[in-house]
């Protein structure tokens, strides 16, 4: 049973914690040993946040080592580049094609990297890079906050576990009233043209 090392990277408030809960539960349902690690508290206040999720026959460290991340889901373009150094060459990279300018950029003190710069940085580590307009996909489904689940759907395309495991994990973690929207969001991401 080969393992999976996932890194989720985003901005506090984007729903990375929920996405990592779903991802971890999917692994449990698929029969893996699973560890998930994230940071709460001050870091959540609009700062960079990451979550490590590991599936394997037996997982020791809850943190993935530098150069060992096999799958990254970036909820924001700049954050994809910020954590690219943790990836294994050839890693699967799913990027939400969405920019949240940091406060130093809106204040005019810093520059947000251009689309070309983002793509060039990620291309240096992998050719398996997929940009996804998850925000507009989720908006079309009537719930923009489900863009995190759209990204998981895209990820699921590269992970060999049954669809049922994903859907059951989603049902376990999203509020009942948004379940249908989240299922649709997941399937839209899974079907996305990558």
């Amino acid at each position: 049973m080969s393992g999976y090392d996932f890194l989720l990277a985003g901005v506090g408030g984007q729903g990375t914690l929920l996405a990592s809960d779903v991802l971890a539960t999917t692994g449990v349902r698929a029969g893996f040993d699973v560890k998930k690690s994230e940071v709460h508290g001050m870091a959540q206040r609009g700062g960079s946040v990451t979550s490590h999720v590991r599936w394997g026959e037996r997982v020791f460290s809850p943190l993935i080592g530098r150069g060992e991340v096999g799958y990254m889901v970036a909820f924001e373009r700049l954050e994809a580049v910020r954590f690219a150094g943790l990836l294994r060459p050839g890693a699967v990279i799913i990027v939400n094609d969405h920019a949240i300018p940091p406060i130093s950029v809106t204040a005019g003190n810093d520059r947000y990297p251009s689309d070309e710069e983002v793509r060039a940085a990620l291309a240096a580590i992998s050719t398996n890079v997929h940009f996804l307009p998850a925000v507009s996909i989720a908006e079309r489904l009537g719930e923009v906050r489900a863009n995190n689940v759209v990204l998981l759907g895209a990820l699921s395309h590269f992970v060999e576990v049954p669809l049922d495991c994903w859907l059951a994990a989603i049902a376990e973690h999203v509020p009942a009233r948004t379940l249908e929207t989240n299922r649709s969001a997941f399937l839209a991401g899974r079907r996305a043209n990558l």
């Binding site: 901005v11 506090g12 001050m42 870091a43 959540q44 206040r45 609009g46 700062g47 960079s48 150069g67 700049l78 954050e79 580049v81 910020r82 690219a84 150094g85 990836l87 060459p89 300018p101 940091p102 130093s104 950029v105 810093d110 520059r111 947000y112 990297p113 710069e117 060039a120 940085a121 240096a124 580590i125």
Partner: peptide, 13 residues
């Protein structure tokens, strides 16, 4: 792996 990247703006809380 050398990643070509401009200086990235920090994102503090």
């Amino acid at each position: 792996v050398e990643i070509p990247s401009p200086p990235l703006p920090p994102r503090p809380p």
